[in-house]
Amino acid sequence: MKDSKMATAEKKERQSRGNVNINKDRCKGCGFCVEFCPTHALRFSEDFNALGYHYPVRLEEAACTGCDQCGAFCPDFAIFGYRYKSHT
């Protein structure tokens, strides 16, 4: 049986070991994060930010490992990744 799109997103989110924090108004739309995300978990926004650029948004269908590769690439300090950590 084929999962619905929503169900896939939920599944991926469960598989995600981390997430990204995006400060969209600092972004200048260079696309380093979108291009080089190892799990392709980012895409460009449709709308513009305050500076007039398309900024990255999290692609719900893909898992984020929280590797922070996007954060390391970002020339504008607009995004960073972080890992979830189990807590008992």
């Binding site: 924090n21 600092r26 200048k28 300090f77 960073f80 979830y84 950590k85 807590h87």
Partner: peptide
């Protein structure tokens, strides 16, 4: 799970009152 708050770890070492910087996109 643990989630990080709003702040980019780099911010501590930057003069945030001067960001965005002058460098071009890309």
């Amino acid at each position: 799970r643990v989630e990080l708050c709003e702040k980019n770890p780099a911010e501590d070492f930057l003069r945030m009152d001067r960001i965005p910087h002058i460098w071009c996109p890309g």
